[in-house]
């Protein structure tokens, strides 16, 4: 039954090819991200273009999240070492950002090494 359903699906691959994703800039991309949680250190492989929330999820670390648009702060984490770029942020103050807090759902690493605290 499932095969029959699949066969009826439109398989227009041209459209897919047209929407090919631009290759992420990997100049300052870490190969791993170190995440601290409840006193334990987790070293997770990092794939270019991922947000820190996506990396944590892939590593099955229980990092909270909310709107995932940078509006609520439910995924706040602290940077111990390294730099990130936030794609959007309407909730953290300049002071928060200066103190090292960032939104995991919006953060892309911009340094070759990155260490953050999830707790």
């Amino acid at each position: 039954m499932r095969i029959a359903v699949l066969a009826r699906l439109p398989m227009d691959l041209t459209n897919l090819q047209e929407r090919s994703i631009a290759k992420p800039d990997t100049t300052n991309t870490p190969s791993v991200v170190i995440m601290h949680l409840n006193g334990r250190k987790h070293i997770l492989k990092y794939f270019a273009g991922e947000t820190l929330l996506e990396t944590a999820r892939r590593g099955q670390l229980p990092l909270g999240s909310g709107c995932e648009r940078g509006d609520c702060g439910a995924c706040m984490v602290s940077i111990i070492a390294g730099c990130v770029r936030m794609r959007a942020n309407t909730v953290l103050s300049d002071e928060d950002v200066r103190s090292g807090i960032t939104l995991a759902c919006q953060s892309i690493p911009t340094s070759s090494e990155l260490e953050i605290d999830l707790s």
Binding site: G64, D71, M76, T90
Partner: peptide, 14 residues
């Protein structure tokens, strides 16, 4: 969890 604001997933009102 912990957050600074509650953002609606529909129209983004915080």
């Amino acid at each position: 969890g912990r957050c600074k604001r509650f953002a609606c997933k529909f129209h983004g009102i915080g």
